[in-house]
Write a protein that binds this DNA or RNA. Structure first.
Lengths: 361, 361
DNA sequence: GCCCTGTGCGGAAACGTGTGCAGACGAGGG
DNA sequence: CCCTCGTCTGCACACGTTTCCGCACAGGGC
């Protein structure tokens, strides 16, 4: 029905084995023969059956990507970065969107992922349970996580504590003393305690500067622009509560706060400095100072990490029997690597208006 | 090494054939035997090798999804809808992000897609060339497009002309006569001439109402919030050019325009009515009147369309022979189905301030 | 002249599963 | 009692590759 390797072999007047070697690049093939085979394959429109090839090699050339959500800037950017890097490396990406629905979640874990159809897994911001972790590690396939430390799995993220600290220190350095932090719920278990970490960075910087910290210096908000807007209305609506600067845990929150400030007639940055995290595409338009991170590059880095753990297809010519031993001895450093995040100063932060450079201690 | 079907067969004291039948649900298996096999598979942690199974059945249980971009609300929402629908239908999704890069584009077409690893294809807003179309159709696999008509391929989208018309008619019904349209470049070939269609709807409604149409009634903008903002600054900055209402081809454009209006001290809707298309998540926050569409539902609908073209795997206990005949005779209607899009009125549109209900003719 | 190594190629054995075919068994109708 | 039919199971082949092994040949060092 469809043209197989046998047809190409007949057409090029060689054996199936030679066709395989010529097209895959493994083993010795004389150059004229190789050209003849390639020409034959092209003429017949031959494409290798990945099923058959995977069956015998054990490699699928697929990488599974697990994401809790797609329709958000951070996650979609990661996905784009991962996809591009995998494609250029010759791998296809299988996307698994792990929604809140527990049922779909467990189906993916117990049914889809385990079906021997991926060579490796990239898990994005995925807080997994103990059984799920066992399930993943039980696959014996490389896994890399993006977004926070994971037990026994190499992971990758920015240093959220440092980011929070850096942002807060920027505001302090400008002379602010009455600083608020608007972020996500620190008790949220999913999302790798990112909220708690950025809050910790905030607290650390404030304490180090000897600035007072009260409960009301932290406001929980829904993690998007409307959430930031709502929090901004609430905070800025009360003049007695109003700080001179706000560190928002994400640019979308910061943008919402800026919009709220505009509606209330509060000038940014003259009356209110705002700093965010992400360097969101909209940050430039709002002149938002931010701690920049590049999720697409994080995705690409995760791909590099995960591919490094894959057995190098061609090179290794090791003996057959010790294979599982080698597999276990492979460099699988369960470490958490931190991606640097740097400050981008724009127009939303400045020295506080009223007080000059008053005493800091 | 890994547990195969043979191990399960031994454990359950049956043959491999019975294990296959028991687990796949095809053919006769006595209930006690089936339970024994299922228990054995579960005890051994057996999972079917999709490579082997695909090799013999010819089905991969994969659907390829082609997208030009991921990090945009419309596309990410479609992807979420497609992913969810496919997962519940028992299919895995292989994501191919066709970037602007022609090189990556052709690689996907000539190399990845053709690798016999997908049963069907969903192409999102993909303007394909003649050779690409042949390449896709040559696969002999079901294809469904989202976003506009495609030669010989069933497609799916909202009626962009009707949407533009509906939006414009809403403004006209409110009493506006000086209406502008801000949209994308109508000459952009990609994106299925969506821009041209919405422009056509605008022109149609204006003409039907007997309203004048000049070149300056249409402004091209980059298709995101900053693009709308830039266009808004330009349009609204010149008082002589300022219309009383703007129909933006997308909510993100409309939001940018509203932001520009706020900066210029122009009241919405008192001095300027704005209507968009999409019902974007941010629309409610800005009180934006919009023509609502649901890209996630479009994705699910595309999945339903594409699955309907696939040979029914389970359930059907029909005779074996005649299958290829049925395949050829399958209903593959290369039609373009329109999804309804309805008006959602919020606070960004109202009757124009100055003139009352003046003569419309 | 002989062995060894490097190169080029073909035969055939896997890889793990689905499924056609045949055989076995019990029930029911003649 | 025999035949048929429906249910249930096992044998064995096929799916389309990759790759081990063996053979052939050329060239170089002893």
């Amino acid at each position: 029905m469809v043209t197989g390797i046998e047809d190409v072999a007949r057409y090029a007047e060689v054996s199936k084995a030679t066709v395989s070697r010529a097209l895959s690049g493994h083993g010795y093939v004389a150059e004229p023969t190789r050209l003849r085979v390639v020409a034959a394959a092209s003429a017949l429109g031959y494409v290798v059956s990945s099923s058959a090839s995977s069956l015998v090699t054990g490699r699928t050339n697929n990488v599974g990507v697990l994401m809790p959500v797609i329709n958000q800037w951070f996650f979609a950017s990661i996905l784009e970065g991962v996809e591009t890097a995998l494609l250029t490396a010759g791998y296809d990406v299988m996307l698994y969107n792990l929604t809140k629905s527990e049922e779909a979640r467990s189906r993916v874990f117990e049914y889809f992922l385990v079906r021997k159809r991926v060579d490796a897994i990239i898990a994005v911001t995925l807080e997994i349970t103990a059984t799920e972790s066992r399930s993943l590690l039980g696959l014996g396939k490389p896994i890399v996580g993006i977004g926070g430390a994971l037990a026994g799995i190499p992971t990758l993220s920015i240093d959220d504590v440092a980011a929070g600290q850096l942002a807060t220190e920027h505001l302090i350095a400008l002379g602010h003393t009455n600083i608020m932090h608007v972020g996500g719920d620190p008790n949220e278990v999913r999302s790798f305690r990112m909220h708690a970490k950025r809050l910790l960075g905030f607290v650390t910087a404030m304490s180090a500067a000897g600035l007072p910290l009260r409960q009301e210096h932290y406001e929980v908000a829904q993690f998007d622009i409307p959430g930031g807007y709502a929090a901004g209305r609430q905070i800025l609506g009360d003049p007695r509560r109003r700080p001179s600067a706000i560190f928002a845990a994400a640019d979308e929150l910061a943008i919402g706060i800026i919009l709220a400030a505009r509606e209330l007639g509060i000038l940014v940055p003259e009356e209110l400095s705002v700093i965010g995290v992400d360097d969101h595409p909209l940050a430039a338009m709002f002149g938002l100072t931010s701690i920049a991170q590049r999720p697409d590059e994080q995705g690409a880095a995760a791909v590099a990490l995960v591919l490094a753990q894959l057995p190098r297809g061609a090179g290794a010519g090791g003996a057959g029997p010790g294979a599982p031993l080698d597999l276990l001895a492979l460099p699988t450093p369960p470490t958490h690597t931190m991606i640097p995040a740097n400050l981008v100063v724009r127009a939303s932060t400045s020295a506080p208006r009223h007080r000059g450079l008053s005493a800091t201690g």
